[in-house]
Design a protein around this nucleic acid. Structure first.
Lengths: 107, 107
DNA sequence: CATGAATGTCGTCGATCGCATACATTTCAT
DNA sequence: ATGAAATGTATGCGATCGACGACATTCATG
């Protein structure tokens, strides 16, 4: 059951709660939050606390897992690529004060 | 990759960020949050905003899924069980004013 | 219709957030 | 070692949270 928004999460929580025949008040007590917070999270409130969310999931005996869409090739270790100094290479040949200065990136 | 706490989530986010060779500042910009917020979430801050968390996961091209540990039998539909009135059934036979009154639940 | 349960909403109030900025520390390439 | 980048930490500020309690609404039941 994949999701990417607070609203979807809220709907899943509500579904799970109902599947267990719990009221919002029940879940709130079990999770150690206010009933109003349950109302909010089920409604998809984006600014709800992360911690309470986990508490709530735990109270429902649920856990999360993470999925990469397209898994980018992870650098197999801690490789640092030595970037050639473009300025030094090109600088000697280019017109001094030429427009379009380049920006550097990386370590 | 299952997890149940903000700290675990933070570690996964950090791992994913590094796998993409992004700095905290990069990720912060991509997710539309402050760099300091990235520092906090990676450190497992429990009171971080849920919405920004999703933004960050999206920036990393990640999504979540939910797992029930032991899936409780969900009521197949919207069944409401008609609870017999215990008091009425038992009341006529039990000692009036007997201790241990029962509590009722459900709609 | 009267009752009770569940849910949603409102207002108050102390606590905390997250951003910006600046500074400190760690890490890495040269 | 040196310098630059990455990362962690501190402060100040306005904005928002979440608990609590009180209502309003809806729905099923008697």
């Amino acid at each position: 059951m994949k999701f990417r928004t607070p609203l979807e999460l809220g709907l899943l929580i509500r579904r799970a709660r109902r599947a267990r025949s719990m009221t919002q008040a029940d879940l709130a007590r079990a999770a150690g939050v206010g009933r109003q917070w349950i109302v909010a999270i089920e409604a998809g409130k984006p600014r709800a606390e992360l911690g309470k969310t986990f508490q709530t999931l735990a109270a429902l005996d649920l856990s999360l897992s993470i999925h990469g869409e397209g898994t980018p090739e992870p650098p197999s270790s801690r490789i640092r690529i030595a970037v050639p100094d473009i300025e030094a290479v090109v600088g000697a040949h280019e017109d001094p004060g030429a427009p379009g200065a380049m920006r550097r990136r990386g370590r």
